[in-house]
């Protein structure tokens, strides 16, 4: 039920009555897959099949599949789609639904923890700093975790995933 409601909301967000014009016009040409850098690493990741399932209303199939989380938002598919379907942007929305329904994969939680702690996905290593110095790049600044990061996490609702994790 929850998913169905989300699907309705998603359709509304993607363009309401224009959903058909924006998603169901997909004629399964595979341009998105041909240019997808993830499809090269993981041959099971296939944005075309995600669009196919979506246009047929099979949203649980997408959400229950962890492959959805492999998209890295390079937006090549969106750029090259001959029908101008915003594939990567739709995937963002699908991920949001999946996060609500099923939670987010462990790797993302770890990244979140790191961000909450340091403001970065990975810590600054001395090697990085040395390289930057050699290249005449400015030193990396420590972001204010308390002031900025926490606020961003709260406003985007991402902190909920952290809280869940802590409760566990």
């Amino acid at each position: 039920m929850e998913i169905e409601k989300d699907l309705e909301k998603l359709i509304e967000e993607i363009g309401g009555e224009d959903f058909q014009k924006k998603v169901q016009v997909c004629y399964q040409c595979g341009t998105c897959v041909g240019g997808c850098p993830v499809a090269w690493v993981n041959e099971n990741f296939n944005p075309r099949k995600i669009m196919l399932a979506l246009s047929r209303g099979e949203i649980d199939e997408i959400i229950n599949n962890d492959l959805l989380w492999f998209c890295c938002y390079c937006h090549t598919c969106l750029e090259r789609c001959p029908q101008k379907i915003p594939v990567s942007e739709i995937i963002v929305k699908l991920k949001n639904i999946a996060a609500k329904v099923r939670g987010i994969p462990e790797g993302y939680v770890n990244e979140l923890k790191m961000i909450a702690k340091t403001g970065r996905i990975s810590s600054i290593s001395s090697a990085t700093e040395r390289r930057r110095e050699q290249l005449n790049l400015p030193k990396l600044v420590q972001t204010s975790v308390e002031k900025d990061i926490k606020r961003i996490l709260k406003q985007t609702g991402t902190n909920l995933f952290l809280e869940k994790e802590i409760k566990k």
Binding site: C29, G30, T31, C32, G34, G35, C36
Partner: peptide, 21 residues
């Protein structure tokens, strides 16, 4: 069947690489 997303070129011998599904 598949619309190629991109063609790349080997700059040394001008061979072409078709990226498609």
């Amino acid at each position: 069947q598949g619309k190629p997303s991109e063609i790349a070129q080997d700059p040394n011998n001008h061979n072409l690489f078709i990226y498609s599904e």
